[in-house]
Amino acid sequence: MDSRTKEIIFRFEKSWNDTEKIFDMLLENGFERLKPVREFITELKKKEENHNFRIGTSMYRLIFSRSIEHGLRDDQKLLIIDTLDKNDYEVILRDGFKKYRKYRVNDLNDPKLTKLLETLKGTLID
Rank of each mutant, 00 (worst) to 15 (best):
M1D: 09
D2N: 13
S3A: 15
S3W: 06
R4H: 13
R4M: 12
T5H: 01
K6T: 09
E7A: 07
E7M: 05
E7D: 13
E7C: 08
I8C: 08
R11H: 12
F12C: 03
S15E: 02
S15C: 02
S15A: 12
W16S: 01
W16G: 00
N17V: 13
N17S: 15
D18P: 01
D18L: 08
D18N: 10
E20W: 06
E20I: 09
K21C: 06
K21S: 07
K21F: 09
I22R: 05
I22F: 06
I22G: 04
F23Q: 04
F23H: 03
F23Y: 14
D24P: 01
M25T: 04
L27W: 02
F31L: 11
R33K: 14
R33L: 15
R33T: 09
R33G: 07
L34N: 04
K35N: 10
K35E: 15
P36Y: 04
P36G: 07
V37L: 00
V37W: 02
V37R: 01
E39Q: 09
F40W: 11
F40K: 01
I41G: 00
I41E: 03
T42Q: 13
L44S: 04
K45H: 10
K45A: 14
K46A: 08
K47S: 07
K47E: 12
E48P: 05
E49F: 15
N50A: 11
H51D: 02
H51P: 05
H51V: 06
N52H: 14
N52P: 01
R54P: 05
T57V: 12
T57A: 06
T57S: 10
S58G: 11
Y60Q: 13
R61T: 07
R61V: 03
R61I: 08
L62Y: 10
F64C: 00
F64H: 03
I68D: 06
E69I: 02
E69A: 05
E69L: 11
E69Q: 12
H70I: 12
H70D: 13
H70Q: 10
G71K: 10
G71A: 04
R73N: 15
R73K: 15
D74L: 13
D75S: 11
D75E: 11
K77I: 05
L78I: 03
I80T: 02
I81P: 00
D82P: 07
D82S: 11
D82T: 14
T83G: 02
T83R: 06
D85A: 14
K86F: 00
K86H: 00
D88E: 14
D88L: 13
D88Y: 05
Y89A: 01
Y89P: 01
E90C: 12
E90Q: 15
L93W: 05
D95S: 14
G96N: 09
F97D: 11
F97L: 06
K99L: 08
Y100C: 00
Y100I: 05
R101L: 07
Y103F: 11
Y103S: 06
R104H: 11
R104T: 14
V105D: 08
N109A: 08
D110W: 14
K112F: 11
L113E: 06
T114G: 04
T114S: 12
L116M: 14
E118R: 12
T119A: 13
T119M: 15
T119N: 12
T119L: 15
T119Q: 15
T119R: 12
L120N: 11
L120M: 04
L120S: 10
K121G: 07
G122L: 03
T123E: 15
L124I: 10
I125H: 04
D126E: 13
